[in-house]
Design a protein around this nucleic acid. Sequence first.
RNA 1: GGCCCGGUGGUCAAGCGGCUAAGACACCGCCCUUUCACGGCGGUAACACGGGUUCGAUUCCCGUCCGGGUCACCA
Length: 495
Amino acid sequence: MDLDKSYFEAMEAKIPKGKVRTRFAPSPTGYMHVGNLRTALYTWLIARHAGGTFILRIEDTDQSRQVEGATEVIYRTLAECRLDHDEGPDLGGPVAPYIQSQRRDTYGKYAHLLVEKGHAYYCFCEKTESEEDSGQFGRADDPCRDLDPAAARARVEAGEPYVVRQRIPKEGTTTFHDAIFGDITVENSTLDDQVLLKRDGLPTYNFANVIDDHLMGITHVVRGSEYLSSAPKYDLLYQAFGWEVPTYVHCSPVMRDAQNKMSKRHGDPSYEDLRDQGYLTEAILNYVALLGWSPRGELAEREVFSLEDLAQAFDLGGMSKSPAIFDIDKLTHFNALYLRAMSPEDFARAAEPYIRQAVKNPAIDAAQVTALLQARCEKLTEIPEKVDFFEALPDYGVELFTNKKSKTDPEVSKAMLQAAIPMLESLGEWSQDSIHDGLVALAESLGVKNATLMWPVRIAAAGKAVTPGGAVEICRILGREETLRRIRLGLDKLA
RNA sequence: GGCCCGGUGGUCAAGCGGCUAAGACACCGCCCUUUCACGGCGGUAACACGGGUUCGAUUCCCGUCCGGGUCACCA
């Protein structure tokens, strides 16, 4: 083993100091689920709130689980969500490389260093079945633990396969601190001599994490609470190296229901799935931020936060210890809020493609349609089905002409439509106001309520019971000719 | 099963020894109205249970129950 002191000194020298540094460290699975996104968001928020540095690190130490195009999904998602990183595989940085598979030598060196220090040992056992039959204790009494160091080193140098295991004290307790869970103390006897360096020379997740977080100068380690129980072993590792322990921030999981986490396996949506379902990135981030974190003090009642607002308001004290169930209805509500908050121009730009998906006829003015839609849709993807009647009159039944509230039935409707035709034909200009005034005046002269006339006109014009906009808007958009054609068609049905 | 963590309405949650226990989503009414929405107003609905500590517990402690996590040469 060459334990070149200067190597470690050089590594230490590169570590940036004095600023908050956080890292999002996904393993490339090709799927960015909501829990992942939330972890990335919180990690980013901690950095930005403090004016610190946000780092992207790819954890690909599992040779058997590589997924094609997986890192692209990560880059894409972070970029779309505007969770920009300052250092990473693509950008480089002072502590490059940022891909674990490219840091292999480093882990090996530190593993051997730890053996040298006596806090780890070489293990030549085939597999770890001994844990099974060691009774009460989850930990094996690994025979290699007490091998003579010199003898063990000789076997390693002779090329015998080995793993490096952490030497956990048999006695005593270890207490570690988490920013949201507080102090947690465990008996060392419940901790096992975990593998640090695998037989293939690559580090385990736990080891690589500690090494990288230290060497990259990470000050806040944000991760899922499933790592809570391995955290004491991390502290022991930091102690063994004589390193400063970073602040741990363990996040409770995002659940699909009371007992299951969100997962790809269950078909739960990833960020990109949600986006494809018509959810706005800002709405997703806003909602996800509030799943497990809530503002406190005077902000306690506020729910709408832009990314910038979040960066300013975010604090670890507002984080929840218990799991949160993902509620698509509430996300939908946020989406509707964001849709309505858009300027009419922005909304029109976003909505037009969806309108054109259903309405090809260039005579239909998409801009006029979007104006009707803004207060009426929760997701952009529901637009096509709402506006398809502009393209083609649906085949509808006469029962639609019956509405008890506006006192209309087929008989009344027939009279209304018959009266409407000459009026609409003689209208000077075809505008919102002229149609509206004409119809209202007609209702008055006929001695009926506006609704009694409007209902059949709208039904005849649209061919469906529920429409965005009323009779006037629909007629205006359809144009005089098409409106009259549809009303005559309605009359045919009523004949 | 051992160890660790958690437990306020269906959901997200505020609360951090004294409150008629916020707010939001969903749901249900009413108003507005040219259908549906939007908007406005109102309503149903919660401190898991049992012991302590205390003048006083949702809040602090213990136990029970329930839920989650973890016990890999996966992350």
